[in-house]
């Protein structure tokens, strides 16, 4: 009797979670998949088949954009890690008390405004008549106005800026938990700064590094605004293609197939990343 009641309680507690999973995640994906395998043959006429996936593989624009998006997202992740690690190390290990809080808050400040405003900020800085170009002309580094916007570099800058906080937070958390005496012991035993970083600090921070990388990679891969606004004529982003298929082409079938391919790509890259770093998802994200 008692065990029946506790079971009921368990299911009642589980119900919201299950409801959330089913209605917000599983059902839409089932729907998306159903749409992705229906091919349009005429007005209000559809057939089941994998034609939409075939379109993806037969059209170089689509799979090249796919590969490009993956490559640039990975590059963004690496760049964010390289930039974020020293910052996180500085915050976690070299500051105390109020300075630490202040620095942490400073990383948060860009997130008080919307992504759109942040991206427009970069446009103001990087455009041909923008702050950076004018400053470089004023200091005589360049002779005439230079366009820094509308290229892949601008996209990277925007993406790194947008996602660096999501790298710093898990890194600070893990680096904070690294006992200073381990670093001192490393020095005491004759280690150089580099070997201590490689053998002690990075192995310790690995769960934070991996979880930061997963989040940053996902954010970059799924970003829509930044690549559209900062990118140039050739700067295609896969989410842009999905948007185009759904909205301007009215081709939900192909858009859904693209959506599934993106899901498969991100899952595959995360899986690969976990395997390479010998971390488990529960170890990195479940902290």
């Amino acid at each position: 009797m008692g065990s029946d009641r506790s079971k009921l309680g368990f299911y009642l507690l589980l119900a919201p979670l299950l409801l959330w999973l089913v209605t917000l995640i599983i059902l839409p994906h089932i729907g998306l998949f159903a749409v992705s395998i229906s091919e349009k043959v005429g007005v209000r006429e559809y057939e089941t088949g994998l034609g939409n996936y075939a379109v993806f593989f037969n059209e170089p624009l689509y799979w090249r954009t796919f590969a490009r998006t993956a490559f640039m997202s990975i590059s963004t992740t690496v760049l964010t890690l390289l930039l974020g690690f020293p910052i996180a190390y500085y915050i976690a290990k070299l500051t105390r008390g109020r300075t630490k809080t202040t620095l942490f808050l400073m990383c948060l400040i860009p997130f008080w405004v919307s992504e759109l405003v942040r991206t427009f900020g970069w446009m103001i800085l990087l455009r041909e008549t923008g702050v950076l170009s004018n400053f470089l002309q004023y200091t005589g580094v360049i002779g005439g106005p230079v366009e820094f916007l509308y290229n892949d570099g601008a996209i990277m800058v925007g993406l790194v800026y947008t996602s660096i906080l999501f790298m710093i937070v898990p890194l600070v958390t893990t680096l904070d938990s690294l006992d200073d005496s381990l670093i001192e012991a490393g020095y005491d035993l004759g280690g150089s700064g580099f070997s201590i970083l490689r053998e002690i600090v990075i192995p310790h921070a690995m769960p934070g590094i991996v979880s930061g990388c997963i989040v940053v990679f996902m954010l970059s891969l799924g970003n829509y605004l930044t690549p559209i606004l900062l990118g140039g004529k050739d700067s295609l982003w896969f989410t842009g293609l999905i948007y185009t298929q759904f909205i301007t082409r009215f081709n939900w079938e192909l858009g859904s197939a693209f959506g599934f391919l993106l899901l498969a790509l991100s899952s595959a890259v995360v899986f690969l990343g976990l395997k390479l770093s010998r971390q488990s998802l529960s170890n990195t994200m479940g902290r």
Binding site: E184, A185, D188, E199, I200, P203
Partner: peptide, 29 residues
């Protein structure tokens, strides 16, 4: 610097490296 001195230190909480096996710990220096 501490890494150039002919002294070694046993820390208060020992500071063994949890990311390494015992053999790697001892072999670190």
């Amino acid at each position: 610097g501490p890494n150039k001195r002919p002294v070694s230190m046993v820390f208060q909480h020992l500071a063994l490296f949890p990311m390494m096996s015992i053999g790697k710990n001892i072999g670190f220096g």
